[in-house]
Computed example of a mutant assay.
Amino acid sequence: MLELGISKMALIGAVALIVIGPEKLPRVARTVGTLLGKAQRYVADVKSEVNRAMDLDELKKMKESVEQAGRDVEKGLKSASADFEKDWSEVTASLSDSGSGAGESESTPAWEPPPPEYHRPNKNWRLKRGATPQWYKQRRGVRRQVQSGAARVARYRPKKIHDR
């Protein structure tokens, strides 16, 4: 890679000033800057595309390995369930053969009724949850007790001013 230090850049700038001239140098510098920017963006796009392709290949390999593991697990479960069914049928066949001669054996439990259903007590729990505490009402000045009509009129009646 090119190693451009301050001294080399100053030498290139002096040569460009002499060759191109002071009138065209700013325009050429802008053009060179935009071209360099486009080249850097192109290189970055190519790098990201290559990285994406590599990641895609890795993901495909990982997907295949996960699918293979899933198939292996499925085969194992099928064989285990077949073994279980075979063992279960053998056990139930032996129990039915031994229990048929003597009637109902002592090892089998009698039928038990299901547990009773839950019944919620007749309490108004929504009222309890929605109730505002008395101290909060008092602090906010909320009326806590019912007031009769006469008491309300007396409370809000304008006070009379006695003239002498």
Rank of each mutant, 00 (worst) to 15 (best):
L17M: 05
I18Q: 12
V19W: 13
V19E: 10
I20M: 03
G21V: 05
P22C: 09
E23F: 14
E23S: 10
L25W: 02
L25I: 09
P26R: 00
P26Y: 06
P26A: 01
P26L: 08
P26N: 01
R27P: 00
R27K: 15
R27Q: 12
R27V: 12
V28R: 01
V28Y: 08
A29I: 08
R30S: 13
R30E: 10
T31S: 13
V32Y: 02
G33S: 12
L35N: 13
L35G: 04
L36D: 09
L36Y: 03
L36E: 13
K38I: 09
Q40M: 05
R41K: 15
Y42I: 11
A44F: 03
D45T: 15
D45I: 10
D45G: 10
V46N: 04
S48M: 15
E49K: 07
V50M: 06
V50L: 08
N51Y: 11
R52W: 10
R52Y: 13
R52C: 10
M54E: 14
D55G: 06
D55F: 03
L56E: 08
D57G: 09
L59E: 13
K60I: 08
K60S: 03
K61N: 14
E64W: 05
S65K: 15
S65W: 01
V66T: 04
E67S: 04
Q68S: 11
A69K: 06
A69M: 07
A69D: 02
G70P: 00
V73Y: 15
V73S: 11
E74V: 06
E74H: 13
E74K: 08
K75S: 09
L77A: 02
L77I: 01
S81A: 12
S81R: 14
A82I: 03
A82M: 05
D83S: 10
D83F: 06
F84N: 02
K86P: 01
W88R: 14
W88G: 02
S89C: 10
E90R: 14
E90T: 08
E90G: 06
V91A: 12
T92K: 14
T92C: 06
A93V: 03
L95K: 07
S96G: 04
D97H: 08
D97T: 06
D97K: 09
S98A: 13
S98R: 13
G99D: 07
G99W: 07
S100L: 11
G101V: 09
G103H: 03
E104H: 09
E104S: 11
E104W: 10
S105F: 08
T108M: 07
P109M: 01
P109Y: 05
W111A: 10
E112D: 08
P113S: 05
P114C: 03
P115I: 00
P116W: 00
E117S: 13
E117T: 11
Y118D: 00
Y118I: 00
H119S: 05
R120S: 03
R120W: 01
P121V: 07
N122F: 04
N122T: 10
N122Q: 05
K123R: 09
K123E: 11
W125Y: 12
R126A: 06
K128F: 08
R129M: 02
A131W: 02
A131M: 11
A131Y: 03
T132F: 00
T132Q: 15
P133L: 09
P133S: 07
P133A: 10
W135H: 15
Y136I: 11
K137W: 01
Q138W: 04
Q138D: 14
